[in-house]
């Protein structure tokens, strides 16, 4: 996660929030949110090294596979659920999105944008599967199984009654407003289940 993403996500977390970070890694973001927002944090990660790192810094980490769902958590238990650059690596992506929006009042989702011009160029002109800084894998070893463009994700949200409360597109850490689906390498969304939201 870049510093810019880090800051955008932090800004979206209200003080004293109960936060769940799915795929929390070494817990850096949660530690930051605990320190700066007095957030009460939990993280999920399946990686033993990540779990150890979180325990070492005092993060409430739960070693778990996201694909199992979030049955452990009650509806709307968290103020915010963060899923950073992980959605594209999940298999039951739609089911997970549902779960995220069930347990969190808001969801903060970061996705690499498969619609970036260089991706389009590599596939459209070069005829090769795209490899980039954000998607650094070859087709045969990539953990990413569900690619989406920012526009795809917008459509997904509209179709699934997911309300987009806010979204920021970034190109190499710089906010992109025009032609975001071609220029941005990553999109950060602040979402809510449109069916139970009341803003």
């Amino acid at each position: 996660m870049t510093n810019v993403e880090f800051k955008i996500i932090s800004d979206w977390i209200p003080p004293n929030a109960k936060v769940l970070d799915l795929g929390c890694g070494d817990g850096e973001l949660l530690a930051h949110l605990a320190a700066t927002k007095n957030a009460h944090c939990y993280g999920l990660d399946i990686d033993p090294a990540a779990v150890l790192a979180c325990v070492a810094r005092g993060i409430n980490v739960i070693q778990s596979d996201l694909e199992r769902g979030l049955a452990e958590f009650d509806d709307l238990f968290f103020d915010a659920v963060i899923l950073s650059r992980t959605l594209q690596a999940t298999r039951k992506t739609e089911a997970l999105m549902k779960e995220v929006l069930r347990v969190g009042r808001e969801a903060i989702i970061t996705i690499p944008n498969f619609g970036h011009w260089s991706t389009r160029w590599q596939l459209g002109i070069g005829g090769r599967m795209p490899v980039s800084k954000n998607l650094p894998f070859q087709w045969y070893d990539t953990p990413n199984v569900h690619f989406a463009t920012l526009r795809d994700f917008d459509v997904f949200c509209a179709e699934k009654q997911v309300r987009i409360l806010d979204q920021i597109a970034l190109s190499q850490g710089v906010v992109v407003k025009r032609l975001r689906n071609a220029r941005a390498d990553v999109g950060i969304y602040r979402l809510q289940d449109g069916r139970n939201s009341s803003i």
Binding site: K18, H40, I59, V61, I62, Q63, S64, D74
Partner: peptide, 14 residues
Amino acid sequence: VQALVKNGRDVAYA
């Protein structure tokens, strides 16, 4: 773990 989280307790699970 589930019960502890429900109670808002600090818990790590390995």
